[in-house]
């Protein structure tokens, strides 16, 4: 059996409040991502999706801190890795794309230069070589006229193009893992569809594993093989995508699926009231105790 690429074990993370007090945000999150696999995290706002990804990237800022657990990447615990080595890994073996590309791109530098920098930093290329590679990278994310576009500053591009530049930068060094946190939420639907397709195809082609974060189950379904559902700092259910949609087991997952208007359902079943998650989960605070994870390929049972 192949070893997981990313293995998060019982991750506890919280806000440090003074010396000993600590407000928990993640309460023992565990999941694994296999090499080349696309894994989705869904869950409501504030459930802990982004802090999970920041922990993997080693980008948690005070007062946020991991209190216990392990994040194994190719068997190596990232939490105990020296800062310098973590920096080498980031952008090179693990890369990330965000919802708003403007926050991650430098407004004062051309996009070509910013992509080229990845090759110089991580692959010891000369600037000359790197510039050429940057144009290739832009072409690979299907930016039209890549040599001309390389000379653009971020603000000269549309949101969809900027997101492509981010993807080009993230995939420049052929990382093993791409973390995408709501990368298409700010985009129009047709642009979103193009960007999703691009991520899906490029990662499949290169064998890049993906940790894809979204509140949109439809987006997750179009990209991921497996899905983890987060609620209040816990992973409450995990399953293969198809199985999660067909046989959700946790009340929260059932609620989440029923709360969405589903395309075509009105013509098939007439207009039905959407499920109100709060009404099917009488006491939200009890939810976290019914944690349920169906392991890969195995029919799980309630622990």
């Amino acid at each position: 059996m192949t070893a997981p690429l990313l293995d998060i074990r019982s991750l506890h993370l919280g806000v440090a409040l003074g010396r000993s007090a600590h407000h928990p945000l993640l309460k023992g999150v565990s999941f694994q991502i296999m090499p080349g696999e696309a894994y989705g995290l869904v869950g409501e706002s504030g459930s802990g999706k982004s802090v999970t990804s920041l922990a993997v990237m080693g980008l948690l800022k005070r007062p946020l801190a991991v209190s216990s657990g392990e994040i194994l990447f190719k068997g190596q615990n990232l939490l105990t890795l020296p800062k310098r080595e973590m920096r080498r890994l980031r952008g090179n073996r693990i890369a990330m794309i965000f919802q708003e590309p403007m926050t991650a791109l430098n407004p004062l530098s051309t996009v070509g230069r910013q992509i080229a920098e990845m090759f110089v930093l991580h692959q010891d290329k000369s600037w000359n070589e790197a510039q050429k590679l940057a144009i290739d990278a832009l072409a690979s994310v299907r930016v039209p006229n890549p040599d001309r576009r390389a000379k653009n500053y971020p603000h000269q591009m549309s949101g969809g193009l900027r997101q492509r530049v981010m993807i080009a930068m993230a995939l420049a060094c052929n990382p093993d893992l791409l973390i995408a946190d709501e990368p298409t939420t700010a985009l129009d639907v047709t642009v979103q569809a193009e960007v999703l397709r691009l991520i899906k195809e490029l990662c499949a082609e290169r064998g890049t594993a993906v940790l894809f974060i979204s509140h949109d189950l439809g987006v997750i379904a179009s990209i991921c093989q497996r899905v983890g559902v987060m609620y209040a700092g816990c992973l409450v259910e995990e399953n293969e995508t198809r199985a999660l949609f067909d046989t959700p087991r946790h009340d929260y997952t059932k609620g989440l699926l029923g709360a969405l208007p589903r395309l075509g359902s009105r013509s098939q079943h007439g207009r039905q009231r959407l499920v109100d998650i709060d009404s099917i989960i009488a006491d939200r605070s009890k939810l976290t105790e019914t944690r349920f994870i169906a392991p890969r390929g195995i029919e799980g049972s309630q622990p």
């Binding site: 899906k200 439809g218 995508t241």
Partner: peptide, 17 residues
């Protein structure tokens, strides 16, 4: 527009986006 809607059913039932 309609083809671009990220709908779970559609995504799971058609191989490609």
């Amino acid at each position: 527009l309609i083809a671009a809607i990220p709908d779970p059913e559609k995504a799971l039932n058609t191989a490609e986006l």
